[in-house]
């Protein structure tokens, strides 16, 4: 049986890669993908602790994270589509102001 340590360190590594990508990349779509990576790392942590503590509530929490991730992607991609329609060449750096 692989120890919880290995899963948690893997999860921390994936979370770090996602966070660095979010800070470095400027394409909003790839930034969203990095957010998905971070959410997945957290899911792995939840499931690891669900096994470690023998408590199924961790898996239920993952279910809620999945729902929130789906809603976040829907709204985020809608924002990306609306922005790209107005400014086709925009990156995340060009949109630092909330002006109409």
């Amino acid at each position: 049986m692989v120890s919880s340590n290995s899963y948690l360190v893997l999860s921390a590594a994936v979370f770090t890669i996602g966070a660095v990508g979010l800070m470095v990349r400027r394409n909003p779509l790839i930034m969203f993908m990095c957010v998905e990576l971070m959410l997945n790392a957290v899911n792995l942590t939840f499931i690891t602790f669900a096994r470690g503590f023998d408590d199924i509530s961790g898996q239920v929490a993952v279910l809620f994270v999945l729902v929130v991730a789906a809603a976040e992607v829907v709204v985020g991609l809608a924002i990306v589509v609306a922005i790209k329609r107005r400014w086709p060449l925009a990156t995340a750096d060009d949109l630092s102001e909330l002006r109409g």
């Binding site: 809620f64 729902v67 929130v68 789906a70 809603a71 976040e72 829907v74 709204v75 991609l77 809608a78 924002i79 589509v81 609306a82």
Partner: peptide, 16 residues
């Protein structure tokens, strides 16, 4: 979560 999903669908339609 049902409310959340409904809100996100409505938001996506309104924004796009």
């Amino acid at each position: 979560t049902a409310v959340l999903l409904t809100i996100s669908v409505v938001g996506a339609v309104v924004m796009t």
